[in-house]
Measured scan of single mutants.
Amino acid sequence: ETQAGIKEEIRRQEFLLNSLHRDLQGGIKDLSKEERLWEVQRILTALKRKLR
């Protein structure tokens, strides 16, 4: 995994995270989306740690 590859994956995950946040802010309670949001946040945290 290169730095560029990790950064690209971070961009993808952040896009997905923002999309999930928008969907959930629409007021629709969706447990699967909430679980996915937490999963994406965990992935992002792990990726950012790899960059250090």
Rank of each mutant, 00 (worst) to 15 (best):
E1H: 11
E1R: 05
E1G: 08
E1S: 12
E1P: 06
E1D: 09
E1C: 11
T2E: 12
T2I: 09
T2V: 09
T2L: 10
T2A: 11
T2R: 08
T2F: 08
Q3N: 07
Q3V: 15
Q3M: 15
Q3D: 06
Q3F: 11
Q3C: 11
A4N: 09
A4V: 06
A4F: 10
A4W: 07
A4Q: 10
G5V: 10
G5C: 15
G5T: 12
I6V: 03
I6L: 12
I6F: 02
I6G: 00
I6M: 03
K7P: 02
K7D: 02
K7E: 07
K7V: 09
K7H: 13
K7R: 13
E8V: 04
E8N: 06
E9N: 03
E9Q: 07
E9L: 07
E9S: 04
E9T: 03
E9P: 02
E9H: 08
I10K: 01
I10P: 00
I10C: 03
I10E: 01
I10Y: 01
R11W: 03
R11A: 08
R11Y: 06
R12L: 14
R12T: 03
R12G: 02
R12P: 01
R12I: 07
Q13M: 15
Q13R: 02
Q13W: 15
Q13E: 02
E14G: 02
E14A: 04
E14R: 04
E14C: 12
E14Y: 15
E14T: 10
F15H: 14
F15S: 15
F15W: 08
L16D: 01
L16Y: 06
L16R: 02
L17M: 06
L17D: 01
L17Q: 03
L17F: 08
L17P: 00
N18Y: 13
N18L: 10
N18A: 14
S19E: 13
S19A: 12
S19W: 08
S19L: 11
S19M: 13
S19K: 11
L20V: 01
L20R: 00
H21N: 08
H21V: 13
H21C: 15
H21T: 13
H21Y: 15
H21D: 04
H21M: 14
R22G: 06
R22W: 03
R22M: 10
R22E: 09
R22A: 13
D23E: 13
D23Q: 11
D23G: 05
D23P: 01
D23L: 06
D23F: 06
D23M: 06
L24E: 02
L24T: 05
L24K: 02
L24N: 04
L24Q: 04
L24M: 09
Q25C: 10
Q25D: 08
Q25P: 03
G26N: 13
G26E: 10
G26W: 07
G26M: 10
G26D: 12
G26F: 08
G26R: 04
G27N: 08
G27I: 05
G27R: 00
G27E: 11
G27W: 04
G27H: 06
G27V: 05
G27M: 05
I28W: 04
I28P: 11
I28Y: 05
I28F: 08
I28G: 09
I28H: 08
I28K: 08
I28V: 13
I28T: 10
K29H: 11
K29A: 10
K29G: 09
D30K: 02
D30V: 03
D30A: 03
D30I: 03
D30L: 02
L31G: 08
L31S: 12
L31R: 11
L31V: 13
L31D: 11
S32Q: 14
S32F: 11
S32D: 14
S32W: 13
S32P: 06
S32H: 13
K33M: 09
E34T: 12
E34A: 07
E34R: 13
E34W: 15
E34V: 15
E35P: 03
E35Q: 12
R36N: 05
R36C: 05
R36K: 12
L37G: 01
L37D: 01
W38I: 14
W38N: 12
W38A: 14
W38T: 13
W38M: 14
W38K: 14
W38H: 13
W38Y: 12
E39G: 03
E39T: 04
E39F: 04
E39R: 03
E39H: 05
V40M: 06
V40R: 01
Q41F: 11
Q41T: 09
Q41S: 07
Q41I: 15
R42W: 06
R42H: 07
R42S: 10
R42G: 06
R42E: 07
R42I: 06
I43S: 05
I43G: 02
I43V: 09
I43D: 02
L44N: 00
L44R: 00
T45I: 13
T45L: 11
T45E: 14
T45W: 11
T45R: 13
A46D: 14
A46R: 06
A46G: 06
A46H: 06
A46C: 11
A46M: 12
L47D: 00
L47R: 00
L47T: 01
L47C: 01
L47H: 00
L47P: 00
L47E: 00
K48D: 01
K48R: 13
K48M: 06
R49N: 13
R49M: 11
R49H: 10
R49I: 14
K50L: 12
K50T: 06
K50N: 06
L51S: 01
L51V: 03
L51P: 00
L51E: 02
L51G: 00
R52Y: 14
R52H: 14
R52S: 13
R52P: 04
R52M: 14
